[in-house]
């Protein structure tokens, strides 16, 4: 029962207002993609014990998608940020590193 602050409307949203959308920053693979790249796009997902980047939608609120960086182990939320981003912004990465000095960075 997480609480995530929706960066689009500012509400501290209870998990019952949210819909989860799995891993963030997946790059769409179109008709020209190789079999391997397309398979990875459709099916390969990270499942880290620790820092993770996820997509969420404020489904019962403003309806907007956003991204959240959080720790799957301790449930600590490092921050939420716009879904219109191809990779985590620097301020999020800085905040994660401050809290997790040993973190190796986003999984490849």
């Amino acid at each position: 029962m997480l609480i995530l602050t929706c960066p689009c409307c500012g509400a501290e949203a209870d998990e019952t207002e949210l819909a989860s959308g799995g891993e963030a920053h997946i790059q769409r693979q179109g008709p020209e993609s190789t079999d391997a790249a397309f398979e990875a796009y459709l099916f390969q997902r990270k499942n880290p014990s620790g820092v993770h980047f996820e997509r969420w939608r404020h489904a019962f609120g403003c309806g907007k998608w956003f991204h959240a960086a959080r720790c799957t182990r301790t449930l600590e939320v490092f921050g939420t940020y716009t879904a219109q981003s191809l990779k985590p912004p620097k301020w999020i990465l800085d905040r994660i590193r401050k809290r997790r000095p040993d973190w190796a960075g986003p999984l490849p």
Binding site: R28, R55, G63, Q84
Partner: peptide, 13 residues
């Protein structure tokens, strides 16, 4: 409708 919004918000913004 959610499917449309998802693509508009997260892919073709």
């Amino acid at each position: 409708h959610a499917w449309m919004e998802e693509w508009l918000q997260t892919e073709w913004w």
